[in-house]
């Protein structure tokens, strides 16, 4: 009986986290299209509901009623598993995101490693989808994307080490608390820029959307997918983008901390600040999509391995020696 109670409590907590995440993923798709449209002096989706807010809902409805086509020569189990893997991985990572000092589903000691691990597993959904489709364009897209995501993960890992040197803990709440006086975006600004660009590449956003470059690969790994399975890939992708924004907000922008620690601002709950920071980062993501042209594949690889990796490694050595010589290394 006791177990059942605990079980239901946990299920309620998980639903309280996942339903808002899914709703905000739908809203974020609308925001993305809207920002993109405004940059190009268009209106964007503005018909369904007020300001077109219900556009994503209408799209989802359309996808649900479409037929799911499974290619006869595909590897059916893996073909069906691929969007599920993408979606699940994008959602389970939210378990460790702290919305305030106490509002976190799982306050684990290795929170940042968990986030990093889950985001590095995200590549499997794409590889599985591309390979199981048994078709040229999806396969090429999947291979490109695997190489791209593995490359940019390396520099994201090194950037995380930079932050960890200043914090001295892998717990996400500790990382947020360590930024009480100074957000890490100020001392580690170059790392923030590299993290932002690597996050673009890691989530296959333009200008690094080579896995689905429509001019070369039709739609990359998604080519053979239709109906709700395509929508799941799509949702998973946007949930991943939101996750990377949340990671950036926690690592560099002080997570749920209010920007100014004076009276009226401290009343606002931490979740609101975190959401505002995530939105800020996401609008930057959307603006980049509208402004920057797509990279060529060799340029992308060169940027990852020859520019970002050495730069972030040098910055690790710089941060470590600075902290060491001024005796600022965190101790506990």
């Amino acid at each position: 009986m006791e177990y059942i109670n605990i079980f239901f409590q946990e299920v309620y907590k998980i639903l309280f986290l996942l339903v808002p995440v899914l709703v905000s993923v739908a809203m974020i798709v609308w925001l993305d299209r809207r920002v993109w449209a405004f940059v190009q002096k268009r209106q964007g989706p503005n018909v369904v509901g007020p300001f077109g807010l219900l556009q994503s809902l209408a799209d989802a409805l359309k996808y649900i009623f479409k037929e799911i086509i499974i290619p006869s020569s595909s590897n059916k189990i893996i073909f069906i598993l691929a969007p599920i893997v993408t979606m699940t991985l994008a959602l389970i990572a939210w378990a460790v995101i702290p919305f305030s000092a106490t509002q976190v589903l799982a306050d684990i000691n290795v929170g940042i490693l968990y986030l990093f691990a889950v985001s590095s597993l995200g590549v499997y959904g794409i590889i599985m989808g591309g390979w199981a489709s048994n078709s040229k364009y999806p396969f090429l897209g999947a291979i490109r994307s695997a190489a791209q995501m593995v490359s940019y993960e390396v520099s994201i890992g090194v950037i995380i080490i930079n932050v960890l040197l200043c914090v001295g803990s892998l717990n996400l709440n500790d990382i947020v608390e360590a930024q009480k006086n100074l957000w890490f975006v100020i001392p580690l600004f170059p790392m923030f820029v590299i993290f932002f660009i690597s996050a673009l590449a890691e989530t296959n956003r333009p200008p690094f959307d080579l896995p689905e470059a429509e001019a070369e690969l039709v739609a990359g790994y998604q080519t053979e997918y239709s109906g709700m399975m395509y929508a799941m890939f799509w949702l998973g992708e946007y949930a991943n983008i939101l996750l990377m924004c949340a990671m950036g907000a926690i690592l560099f922008l002080g997570g749920w901390m209010s920007p100014i620690e004076i009276y009226p601002f401290t009343l606002v709950p931490g979740a609101i600040w975190l959401i505002l920071k995530i939105l800020l980062l996401f609008i930057l993501f959307a603006l980049v999509k509208a402004i920057v042209p797509r990279y060529r594949y060799d340029q992308l690889m060169r940027l990852g391995w020859k520019v970002f990796l050495p730069l972030s490694l040098i910055w690790v050595i710089f941060t470590a020696s600075y902290l060491f010589y001024f005796n600022l290394l965190p101790t506990n």
Partner: peptide
């Protein structure tokens, strides 16, 4: 938990 996460990152992720 550290070993578990490193296992995920190194073996599964790379």
């Amino acid at each position: 938990e550290f070993l578990g996460m490193i296992m995920l990152i190194v073996y599964v992720g790379a």
